[in-house]
C-alpha cells in the first residue's frame, strides 16, 4: 500500500485556491461581469445625467454625481452577489462540494473562497465606478484618509451582503430561487433609500424606511467620507450595519452550509 502522509492543514491555501476558481469563473461568465461592471456604469451615466435637473434645479450633473455615485457603487456590488449565492447552491447540489469534503480541505474553504472572490469583484466595481465618476465631476474633498475610507466601506458592507446572499442560498431549493428572493429585496433597498434624493424629498411614508435602510446609512457615510461634514456618526452606523450582516448572516450561513452539506450526503 502506498503510504500517504497527512498534508498539513492549509486553510489559507485552500481558500485562495477556491477563490481563484470562483474569480476565474466570474471573469468567464458574462452575466456576472456585466452586472458587476456595466450595470453600475449604465446607472451612473443614465440616472445621473437625467435626474440631475430634477434633484438639483439649476445645478449640473457634475454636482449631482457627488450625491448619486455611492448608490451605484452599492448597486453594482449588491446585484452581483446573488450570482455568488446561486453558484454556491449549485456546488452543493451537483456534488462538487461533496467531493471537496472527501478531500483534506479546510471545511470552510468553499464558502470562504466564494466570499473572498466576491470581495475582489466588489473592488473591481468600486474602482470602475469611481474612475468613470471622476470625469463626470465626482470629487474627493475630505482628504486622502477619508477617500481610502470611502473605497473600503462598500467593500466591508459588500462582505455583509455576500453573507446575506449565502444565508438565503442555504435555505433555497435551487439557484433560481436564490436570485428570485434576493433581487426584489435589493431593489427595495436601492430605491427606498436616500441614494438618489435627499430624505426630505422622498414621499412621507418612504422616509422612515429610508432612514433605517442600511443602504442609506452606508451611502450617507460614503458621501461624508468623500466630501466632508459630520463623518464619525454615519461611518460608525455603517460599520455597525456591516458588522451585524457579516457576523449575523455569516454565522447562520456557515451553520446552514454545514447542515445542508450533511443532509445532501444522506
Amino acid at each position: 500500500m502506498s503510504q500517504v502522509a497527512l498534508p498539513r492543514p492549509a486553510p489559507v491555501g485552500d481558500t485562495l485556491a477556491m477563490a481563484g476558481r470562483a474569480l476565474r469563473l466570474m471573469l468567464r461568465d458574462p452575466a456576472t461581469f456585466v452586472l458587476a461592471v456595466f450595470f453600475p456604469l449604465i446607472l451612473l451615466l443614465l440616472i445621473t445625467v437625467s435626474f440631475a435637473k430634477i434633484v438639483y434645479p439649476g445645478a449640473g450633473y457634475d454636482d449631482y454625481v457627488d450625491v448619486s455615485l455611492p448608490l451605484f457603487v452599492l448597486m453594482g456590488i449588491a446585484f452581483a452577489s446573488p450570482f455568488t449565492a446561486a453558484a454556491t447552491v449549485t456546488d452543493l447540489r451537483d456534488g462538487f462540494d461533496a467531493r471537496i469534503r472527501t478531500m483534506p480541505v479546510s471545511a470552510l474553504a468553499p464558502l470562504a473562497g466564494r466570499v473572498l472572490a466576491d470581495t475582489a469583484r466588489s473592488a473591481i466595481t468600486i474602482a470602475v465606478v469611481v474612475v468613470v465618476g471622476v470625469p463626470l465631476g465626482f470629487r474627493f474633498t475630505a482628504g486622502p484618509w477619508a477617500a481610502i475610507g470611502f473605497l473600503l466601506l462598500p467593500l466591508v458592507f459588500g462582505l455583509g451582503l455576500g453573507f446575506l446572499g449565502l444565508l438565503v442560498a442555504m435555505r433555497a431549493r435551487d439557484s433560481e430561487t436564490v436570485v428570485a428572493v434576493l433581487n426584489p429585496l435589493l431593489l427595495v433597498c436601492s430605491f427606498l433609500s436616500t441614494g438618489m434624493v435627499q430624505r426630505s424629498d422622498l414621499p412621507g411614508w418612504v422616509q422612515p424606511i429610508a432612514r433605517v435602510n442600511p443602504f442609506s446609512v452606508v451611502i450617507e457615510a460614503m458621501r461624508a467620507l468623500a466630501h466632508g461634514g459630520a463623518t464619525t456618526r454615519p461611518v460608525i452606523e455603517a460599520l455597525v450595519w456591516s458588522g451585524v450582516l457579516i457576523v449575523g448572516c455569516g454565522v447562520l450561513a456557515v451553520r446552514g452550509y454545514r447542515t445542508r452539506s450533511d443532509r445532501l450526503a444522506a
Binding site: V4, R24, L25, D29, G95, F96, P104
Partner: peptide, 16 residues
C-alpha cells in the same frame, strides 16, 4: 481524507 480518492456517481467537476 488524505489517503483516499473518490469518484461519485455524478462527475463532480466544475463544469465552467
Amino acid at each position: 481524507r488524505a489517503a483516499i480518492g473518490v469518484t461519485g456517481q455524478f462527475a463532480a467537476l466544475d463544469s465552467g
